[in-house]
Nucleic acid binder design. Structure first.
Lengths: 146, 146
DNA sequence: AGTCAATAGTTAGCTAACTATCTATTTGTG
DNA sequence: CACAAATAGATAGTTAGCTAACTATTGACT
């Protein structure tokens, strides 16, 4: 057996993988009745927040790459939750806005997202949550550098 | 625009997704010279740690499902880093052990994993890391329940 | 003005995970 | 003991992300 102090079981990095997978699964499940997924719901959340947004910016906000967004946009467009208009300023861009139906769907989903977050963070003090967020932010910054 | 206090940007749940993706990418990159991936390296780590382990237990430790492990096992077996023997006790089980080459590969990769972890957690106090780990553990427990 | 590099988005094809379903074996119960 | 339920692992097919390579457009620099 290899001798080392290194212990994967107590590894924060491993925990993030586990967490993100589990959270995504549960959140997707919760959104299923709305006909949305974590990705599509988060997309309309950010489209609404920015009123008007292009795909590149949205992809960055969602933490995915451009090509991954294409299918999400197509789904939302098919469901008539968003409207896609060519930018008058830059013909390469497509500007995304919510349709009234899209806004309704977002609004319906919001309490669910809030409830989800509350359930997940139940029993944890705000102070500890803040520290955890700071730690995660720092780790992300560190990892991005190398 | 939907009116809400809810803010995805400051959302710990979203950060875990970003983190796990980035960490996996960087760690995979670091392991590339060894001909291993995050999954295969973590697998041999746990196989070594348990001396002898079946696929079900290993999958749980890796945080993946049985079918996902099958290909990883095949790769490790092909690279002659592990040995697969049918369990004498239960003919359904296959017991996994490291070959000498597997142990060498694990040992070679260990300093790299340690260094990786140090780099990512650089500039964060141990106290804060502990709190973050506790917070993550609690969130995982909470999420598992519903 | 003309060309060349950069940018927004798309398409095609890959990967690593997943679920559902299958076989072989084991366990537990009438 | 026999048979039903559970368990270990494999297979097939799906998914959500990725990279690489493409088109169309824009911007920058002679």
């Amino acid at each position: 057996m290899a001798t080392t102090q290194f212990d994967l079981d107590s590894c924060l990095l491993c925990m993030t993988a586990r967490s993100s997978k589990l959270f995504a699964k549960k959140f997707n499940l919760a959104l299923q009745p709305f006909g949305l997924t974590k990705s599509t719901w988060t997309a309309i959340y950010y489209i609404d927040k920015h009123e008007q947004i292009n795909q590149k910016t949205l992809a960055e906000l969602l933490g995915i790459k451009g090509p991954s967004l294409v299918k999400i946009i197509a789904q939302l467009q098919l469901a008539q939750l968003i409207k896609v208009t060519p930018s008058p300023v830059d013909k390469r861009e497509r500007l995304l806005t919510l349709t009234p139906a899209g806004l309704t769907r977002l609004t319906d989903g919001l309490p669910l997202a809030e409830k989800f977050q509350q359930q997940v963070t139940h029993g944890i003090t705000q102070a500890d949550l803040d520290i955890a967020a700071t730690v995660m932010t720092q780790m992300l910054e560190n990892a991005e550098q190398f």
